[in-house]
Design a protein around this nucleic acid. Structure first.
Lengths: 125, 125
DNA sequence: CCTTGACTTAGAGCTAACTCCAGATGATAG
DNA sequence: CTATCATCTGGAGTTAGCTCTAAGTCAAGG
C-alpha cells in the first residue's frame, strides 16, 4: 500500500505517517526498489494501534518505547506489559477527571437551562 | 488570600495563576493598595473551575470565551450554555475514544499476562 | 532605615506533537 | 524522452499551554 492509500484509510496526514516512522513510533516501513514506502498488513496494524493510542492521549514517548521493546523480542514481554499497565493507570485517572468535569458541565448546563425558563440564574455553589 | 496561599490550596503554580488571569481565563483579581493580588472567595471559585475544566482538557480558548461572556451579564446566558454544551459534546467524544483505548490496553495486558504463564505470546488480531 | 523575601510585570523560553517547505528523485501518461 | 505528479529527506515552523527570567516593588522583622 502506498502512503496515500494508508493516509486515506486511517484519515491521517502523510506527514504524520512519515513522522511516526521517523521517530520510531512504528517500525520502519518496507520500501520499493525506488525507495517509496510500501505498507504491509503489519505496518497498517501498527499505524492503527498508534492512532488508537494517540486518540486517547497516550504520550508519543511511551509508544516509542513500546515499539522499541517489541522489536527486541520476547525477553521484553514483562517490560512491555508494565509499560501498558502504567499507561492504563494514567488513562483511568484522566477518565476520572473527565467524569468529574462532565458532571460539573451537566450541572452548569442544567442551571442555564432553568435560567432560560425562569429568567433567574440560580446560585452556583 | 495571597497568591502563595491560593497556589498551595489548589496545587497550581503561581505562574499558572498569573497566566490564567493575564489571558482572561479568570476575571481580574482584586489588589491590595500595594498592587499585590488578594484573592476573594469568588476568585478562588474561578480558579477551581479553571483547574477542573483544564484537567479534563477543555481548551483554554473556550474557557476564555466563557469567562468573557460571564462578565457581560445576563444577555449572554444562552451563548454560555451553548458553549458548555459544545464542550460537553467534545468531552463525551474524547471519553469514548479513551474507553476504546482502555479496552485495547486491557486486551493487550491480558495477552502479555497469559504469555508470562504459558511462555507463548498469543496472536494479536 | 535596612535587609530579606514575597510579589509584580513584560517578555523570552520550553515541550509535545505535529505540519510545512524546499529541493531532489521516482513513477507514469503521452 | 518529456512533462507531470507523487514521494522522498532533512530541517524549519507552528500551536497550545505553560514555565522561567530579569529587573523592579512591596512587606515585615530587627
Amino acid at each position: 500500500m502506498t502512503i496515500t492509500e494508508v493516509s486515506k484509510k486511517y484519515d491521517m496526514s502523510q506527514d504524520t505517517l512519515r513522522y511516526y516512522e521517523r521517530i520510531g513510533l512504528i517500525p520502519a516501513v518496507n520500501r520499493t526498489k525506488g525507495g517509496m514506502r510500501d505498507y504491509t498488513e503489519e505496518s497498517c496494524a501498527w499505524i492503527e494501534l498508534a492512532k488508537c493510542m494517540r486518540s486517547a492521549g497516550i504520550p508519543i514517548e511511551a509508544l516509542i518505547e513500546y515499539c522499541a521493546l517489541t522489536q527486541q523480542g520476547d525477553e521484553t514481554i514483562i517490560a512491555r506489559k508494565e509499560l501498558l499497565v502504567e499507561e492504563r493507570t494514567k488513562l483511568l485517572e484522566k477518565m476520572e477527571d473527565m467524569k468529574k468535569t462532565l458532571e460539573r458541565l451537566n450541572y452548569k448546563i442544567d442551571r442555564y437551562e432553568k435560567a432560560e425558563v425562569t429568567g433567574v440564574l440560580s446560585w452556583d455553589k
